Amino acid sequence: MNKEAFDALFEDRVARRLASLGFAPKGKTLVFFDGCQTLALFRLGGRMSAPGSISHILCFRHSILRDRSEKVPTGFTKEIFDYPYKLRPLEDGGSELIYRPQNLSYHYERLHWEGASEDAVLQKLDRITSNIEDHFLPWAMTLPLTQVRSEIEQHGENAWCERMWIEDYAEHLSLNGS
């Protein structure tokens, strides 16, 4: 399989299906942003890329959180480290969708398409899309702010970004009585 064939399959099996759920392309990233939360499927480049494959990571954040510049962005933020949750889209997460600190580096997935059969590539692309449709998006849309704050407090490393996010959740919850 060549790059053009892979890109066409990705467009058909991932981008189009996710567009029907409200995801929009921002460069090579597919972003769901509803004003309250962002779920973004990042396609990674640079040192994370390799010939004949793509590398990707799925990230989630609430819109009340400040970014690394300590400002609340008004829309989609392109920096992966501005997202508390960094997930691998080929894994469905199951009941283990909890905060895991990845503040200095993160685990991503690599999908090799060169030398793979079309059926094998289609199976992986369909699994990514199904996992986002059936697991990640419903989880993100119903994740309580109190739960995220608690998870960061419980599982965090006391990193400056985690302290900032905990403050953001606490402030929002105190202002909104939740």
Rank of each mutant, 00 (worst) to 15 (best):
Asp34His: 03
Gln37Cys: 15
Thr38Val: 14
Leu39Ser: 01
Leu39Thr: 00
Ala40Pro: 00
Ala40Thr: 00
Phe42Gln: 09
Arg43Ile: 09
Arg43Asp: 00
Leu44Ala: 02
Gly45Phe: 05
Gly45Thr: 11
Gly46Phe: 04
Arg47Pro: 08
Ala50Gln: 14
Pro51Trp: 01
Gly52Cys: 04
Gly52Leu: 01
Ile54Cys: 06
Ile54Lys: 07
Ile54Glu: 07
Ser55Tyr: 00
Ile57Gly: 02
Leu58Trp: 00
Cys59Trp: 01
Phe60Gln: 01
Phe60Met: 04
Phe60Val: 01
His62Glu: 14
His62Arg: 15
Ser63Ala: 15
Asp67Ser: 14
Arg68Glu: 14
Val72Ala: 10
Pro73Glu: 04
Pro73Thr: 05
Phe76Leu: 10
Thr77His: 04
Thr77Val: 10
Lys78Asp: 10
Glu79Pro: 03
Pro84Ala: 03
Tyr85His: 04
Lys86Gly: 00
Leu87Glu: 05
Pro89Arg: 08
Glu91Cys: 10
Glu91Gln: 13
Glu91Pro: 04
Asp92Lys: 10
Gly93Val: 02
Gly94Tyr: 01
Gly94Met: 02
Glu96Arg: 14
Glu96Asn: 14
Glu96Tyr: 11
Glu96His: 14
Leu97Cys: 01
Leu97Trp: 01
Ile98Gly: 10
Ile98Pro: 00
Ile98Ser: 14
Ile98Phe: 12
Tyr108Gly: 00
Glu109Thr: 03
Arg110Pro: 01
Trp113Pro: 06
Trp113Gln: 06
Glu114Cys: 09
Gly115Met: 01
Gly115Phe: 02
Glu118Ile: 11
Ala120Asp: 14
Ala120Thr: 10
Val121Ile: 15
Val121His: 09
Gln123Ala: 14
Gln123Val: 06
Lys124Cys: 08
Lys124Leu: 11
Lys124Arg: 15
Leu125His: 03
Asp126Tyr: 03
Asp126Ser: 12
Ile128Ala: 05
Ser130His: 13
Asn131Thr: 04
Asn131Phe: 06
Asn131Leu: 06
Asn131Cys: 06
Glu133Gln: 15
Glu133Pro: 08
Glu133His: 11
Glu133Asn: 10
Asp134Asn: 12
Phe136Val: 02
Phe136Tyr: 15
Phe136Ala: 04
Leu137Arg: 02
Leu137Thr: 08
Trp139Ala: 08
Trp139Ser: 07
Trp139Glu: 07
Ala140Ser: 15
Met141Glu: 13
Leu143Val: 05
Val148Tyr: 00
Val148Arg: 01
Ser150Met: 09
Ile152Leu: 05
Glu153His: 02
Gln154Asn: 13
Gln154Ser: 14
His155Asp: 09
Glu157Ser: 12
Ala159Lys: 08
Trp160Gly: 08
Cys161Ile: 09
Glu162Pro: 05
Trp165Met: 03
Trp165Glu: 00
Trp165Gln: 02
Trp165Phe: 02
Glu167Val: 07
Asp168Phe: 06
Tyr169Trp: 06
Ala170Val: 04
Ala170Arg: 15
Ala170Cys: 05
Glu171Ser: 12
Glu171Val: 11
Glu171Lys: 13
Glu171Gly: 09
His172Ser: 09
His172Lys: 05
His172Arg: 07
Leu173Cys: 15
Ser174Tyr: 10
Leu175Cys: 12
Gly177Cys: 10
